[in-house]
Design a protein around this nucleic acid. Structure first.
Lengths: 216, 216, 216, 216
DNA sequence: CATGAATGAGTTTTCATTCAT
DNA sequence: CATGAATGAAAACTCATTCAT
């Protein structure tokens, strides 16, 4: 079980093996319940070597988060072609996102659940990734506004809020798709487009829902 | 710090104090990092008393989840008046939800993060609450469909996904509103209505977003 | 379960109920594993009452030992009629012993296992009972010697050892009879008489087994 | 006190040191009253090392029982020469037995008292050793019967009972010799031979003690 | 007389982390 | 480079024992 015990691998390779093992264990057991012993064993190395390369449990977890965050944002970036219409870009991006999280459930568990559950400094690491994705969505919303011949002046504030909502919905759906038997990445993406884009589309056409007047 | 050390309380009162302390500690430290020592100290009692009344860390956590899940669903229920139009009910429900989670951030952390992060039997407890909320949303969708003179039959599966997305978006917005200067819970709710209801509204009118044809 | 909760019993009665419960729990769980909680519950009283009457776990255990030791020696005494020949007295005593220990297995566990396993002051209590039995055997040896017209003066030391061996053999046989299908308590007693009495009988007739000469 | 604190021993050596310490503590305090802390300290190592090598208190105790049971049976086996007459073999075996138990009183306490007092799985471990010794004695009784030109047909059942009684007597005497000042192993063996062999010898010559007729 | 409320002190066990080779 | 040996610190949980009513 675990990586075969091969001797004298170059350091970079060994590190990746350790991170592979760590992501799997952290994703399945959770940050606190994961033990360095188990990670070292799954990586096929001795515990002191893990410490030599990655310093501490905290640093190891941070390294996992960074690697997986980069992989996820890269996957989304690679799935989108900049020239296309905004809804197409959003659709492509969502599909890439759901596909990646479905293929790497442990990584997604690390990013979405574990990192957020265990406070700083981990939450900060994920926040950076999230900010990138929110920025990407924000750009898309701006593009969509332009395409709809609408004044760019959906207030910046409002755009940021919408992007947050969209990303939050996507995150939740990804976790749900991973744990719900029979739910595919494609279905998740479709559901979200129905939910979000059609709502955003209305906004773009100036159809705004307004709160009722008679409140306390 | 913590509850004032009052002696010889009746059991029911003490139990609530312990749950108060436990929710706070679990919400801030996380389930695993929370120590029974710290919870007992915050509750102003000795550890053995916590065990005498609540049995084990697992049982204590479960009791927290149950109490807070009941409080949250009750708050939402109390915020909604059944006779009103669907969008008004949704608006009221969301506001009650945002208000409650904002006032009880530790409880929300327990329900949303901690319980889901630490597997069974906790996830199951939250699933019950989630099912109630999904049922509420499902009823609203049915009401909205009737109001739009349409067939309400969205597949159960689809409704579950939408509900998941809605809660994810809400949670994201709540966090965003809490950390972004100048963003209020009310604005967050408005943004979410724009995002969600107009999307749902389109669905109700048969305006479904369709994926592009030219895919791999 | 346990004694029915009756109020306002006279102290002596309550004490016996407590001792009944304690013997049962100590016999089944062992001295250390027995908990005062469980004993109080089985006795149908509150824990502080146990402490009020019996002082401490140690005192409670000691009281158990004393009561059960007295009961056992009394049972043996009652089974024997002094005027009869020595072998008949031994046979009667053994049968009374086997019968009592079989009927009160928890008491026997307390006396034979628990008390000896947990050092002073308990071992001392049992030693007193053991001394009585040794005295009984010693008397029998004297009677047998008289019957055989011989000098009864086996050294005290030797008699103590013989008594020890006799009780050990009896206990072993009792356990063996209990777990071997087809072996009755009566047969066990017969075997023991064959084993022991005939050996003692030889001793009385001056037929002593002598160790070989050629030793290292 | 305890083993000198030598660092970096090979695992096999450390394990023996730990077992040495454990036998001593278990033998003196009893299984339940023994604390892993004390054992570790006496072994001259830290508690986690004990757990790393021996897993748990239960496993540690089991390892003690196995080691000491093997040592005891080996000592008896080594003390007996198969060709000699039965009484000589019995005498030699008993002397080896008493000598070993006298030299290793804690080990004998573990085997005779502690293991039997604390139920499964410990009792089972000792039962295996006991069965070996009973089998050895049973063989001897058969040999003795042949030597006495007696039909081999002392019923098998009877032989088994006699062996049980003999072993039980020996066990009890060993404990007694260990705790009685001035009682030597040699004297214990002599007493037991007088008690048992002469009885057995009578049996072998057909002199059977018969129970009285006038019973209830 | 009797008890519900409460705890100090101790138990087994685990884990991240570091030497010495 | 790599590891077997080792531990300080803390966690969950239990129990005999005592107040205050």
């Amino acid at each position: 079980m675990g990586a075969v015990k091969t001797k004298r691998m170059p350091r970079a390779v060994r590190e990746q093996q350790m991170l592979d093992a760590a992501v799997r264990i952290f994703g399945q057991r959770g940050y606190m319940a994961a033990s360095m012993d188990e990670i070292a064993e799954l990586a096929g190395v001795s515990k002191p070597l893990v410490y030599l390369y990655l310093n501490s449990k905290e640093d190891l977890f941070t390294a996992c988060i960074r690697r997986e965050a980069a992989a996820l944002t890269e996957a989304v970036r690679a799935g989108v072609r900049p020239g296309l219409p905004a809804d197409r870009q959003l659709w492509d991006g969502l599909r890439a996102f759901f596909a990646h999280t479905a293929e790497h459930p442990d990584a997604w568990s690390v990013l979405h659940l574990q990192a957020r559950t265990h406070g700083e400094p981990f939450a900060g690491e994920v926040a950076a990734m999230r900010a990138e994705i929110v920025a990407f969505v924000t750009r898309l919303v701006a593009v969509a506004a332009r395409e709809a011949h609408r004044d760019p002046d959906l207030p910046e504030h409002e755009v940021a809020g919408l992007s947050e909502a969209l990303v939050g919905a996507a995150e939740s759906l990804a976790a749900w798709a991973n744990t719900t038997p029979g739910a595919t990445a494609r279905q998740a993406a479709t559901t979200l487009m129905n939910f979000a884009w059609s709502g955003l589309g209305n906004l773009m056409r100036g159809q705004v829902w307004t709160p009722p007047m008679d409140e306390a």
